[in-house]
Design a protein around this nucleic acid. Structure first.
Lengths: 145, 145
DNA sequence: CCACTTTAGTTCTAGTTAGAACAATTGTCA
DNA sequence: TGACAATTGTTCTAACTAGAACTAAAGTGG
């Protein structure tokens, strides 16, 4: 007898929406959109990476990624560098200004979320993380054709 | 000592993204976008409701809701009716065609997600639902100014 | 009663999303 | 080697998101 999916799905969606509202508002107060923050956070502490890798890590589609990187480049926070090994490919990396923004915003956001979740039950969060990981594994398998 | 938020947040985001990819693709195969489906599902089995109520239930902002309802109205699936009690307000309700689409797509989507999650550990899902509900409660409280 | 405040939904802007089409480059295999 | 397939990032379209500004209607309180 399969478990009815609606209640747990609804809770997953609602919980995510609540998180997105809280986290997104704080990120925007730092001067970035959530997707821009995600790109910067992914590039932080790396030498850069190809668009393809960046898209895989952020689950961002090619067309969207181009737009976001364009706008971050306009802000002077990232740059494109031709790949040394593949004529089709480009490396996206943080500029010095981008690294400064990363150094400022990443700890600020993590710190903020830490305070938001300061009162949570530790054991419960560890359990939640494992259960979410389990569910994600199933969803990702089903998502493959 | 607060629990570091990054690991559980990351898992929440990843799990949601995996769900969104699977569910969204199926909804689109039914001829609707995910937000359109959400509106139709919310209006299903009701006599309709004001924009404000609809927005609260779907967590959709006013400007976005207007656009979605416009497009659903263009498809003939919903209609606007002047509120009998408030000259500023309108009731949004499913048309007969909209109700037929609801009757077809809602069980199809629920059934699909049921099959996707057919193999899950029942106890684990019940636990997950409770833990997500707990986390959501905290996030929603912190989201209030 | 009336001035002022709040509310409802629309319009608008900047940014994001899914996904298709495209040109240029690389990879594969006979 | 060369034809063809696959890959890379860009461009494009339709739709969605946050949030501000707006007009018209309702609510509030002196």
């Amino acid at each position: 007898m399969p478990v009815p999916s609606l209640p747990v799905i609804r809770e997953l969606v609602r919980c995510y929406q609540a998180f997105d509202a809280v986290a997104g508002a704080h990120i925007r107060s730092l001067g970035l959109t959530a997707p821009q923050f995600d790109i910067i956070a992914t590039l932080g502490n790396t030498e850069g990476m190809r668009f393809k890798e960046l898209g895989e890590k952020t689950l961002c589609t090619k067309g969207t990624l181009t737009g976001i990187v364009d706008r971050l480049a306009d802000k002077g926070l990232v740059r494109r560098v031709a790949s040394p090994t593949d004529g089709r490919s480009q490396i996206v990396q943080l500029t010095a200004a981008g690294e400064a923004v990363f150094a400022h915003t990443f700890p600020a956001q993590i710190g903020y979320m830490d305070t938001v979740l300061a009162e949570v039950d530790t054991e419960r969060m560890a359990r939640l993380q494992q259960d979410l990981h389990y569910l994600r594994g199933i969803l990702e398998r089903k998502g493959k054709p």
